[in-house]
């Protein structure tokens, strides 16, 4: 038996058996946790959308977030993107759309919301980013995101909706020590907002 431990057949059989065992174990665990993970991701997305529309569910409970979301927000498919909108008295008053781009360390996924007549930026929020914690990572902090609420989109020149102070007509403060991330965020949003307005405005 000792001699056969190093034999070709034993080695192959051992590897197959141990791999199969652990694969089944992981498959089982994956199945058990997949519901919780999917729920977390959905809740994340829902709270992001609610945040950009400035609707506060007043709770972190996934159920309440879902109820609030279903009550206010509708969605439709445009091309391969999902656009969210809210209605008041049967009329659409605001849109939320996905924003993607590359910043200093990696890609940024975010959402932005504009009013239905495209005159006002209602809010922005981030889904994922890889910026340095404590520096570029501060883009997810409340004070930074809140600055984007209610920006006027009609007074811009050359589609520069977002401009950092102290530039003339600047409307938002950048993050100290994170210039590249701040600039990337500005460019990503300016570009995506412009694109959305052109596309959506053309369709209506």
């Amino acid at each position: 038996m000792i001699n056969s431990k190093n034999s070709f057949v034993y080695t192959i059989l051992f590897m197959i058996l141990i791999t199969a065992f652990f694969t089944f174990l992981l498959a089982g665990l994956n199945h058990m946790t997949s519901d919780a993970i999917a729920l977390n991701e959905e809740t994340d997305l829902r709270s992001t959308i609610l945040y950009v529309f400035d609707i506060n569910p007043n709770s972190n409970d996934p159920k309440i977030i879902e109820e609030t979301f279903d009550k206010y927000v509708e969605s439709k498919q445009i091309g391969d993107e999902t656009i969210y909108y809210i209605e008041k008295n049967g009329e659409i008053i605001a849109y939320a759309f996905p924003v993607n781009g590359v910043a200093l360390w990696g890609s940024i996924q975010a959402y932005a919301s504009v009013s239905a007549d495209f005159t006002e930026l209602l809010g922005i929020d981030f889904i994922s980013h890889n910026e340095t914690p404590g520096l570029g990572g501060r883009i997810t902090e409340e004070w930074f995101k809140e600055q984007f609420r209610g920006l006027d989109l009609t007074k811009s020149d050359n589609e520069e909706y977002i401009k950092y102070r102290p530039a003339p007509n600047g409307n938002v403060d950048a993050i100290t020590g994170a210039t590249i991330t701040s600039n990337a965020v500005r460019d990503i949003f300016n570009e995506n907002i412009h694109e959305f307005i052109n596309k959506e405005g053309g369709e209506m």
């Binding site: 431990k5 190093n6 034993y10 080695t11 051992f14 590897m15 141990i18 791999t19 652990f22 174990l25 992981l26 665990l29 994956n30 946790t33 919780a36 993970i37 977390n40």
Partner: peptide, 29 residues
């Protein structure tokens, strides 16, 4: 029971299983 010449492969397999468990646990909860 581990054949000596493939023990590293087996170790990596075992370690990765536990790492995935940790990852799933953190993602879920």
């Amino acid at each position: 029971y581990i054949p000596k010449h493939i023990r590293m492969m087996v170790q990596v397999l075992i370690i990765s299983v536990y790492v995935i468990i940790v990852d799933l646990f953190l993602k879920g909860y």
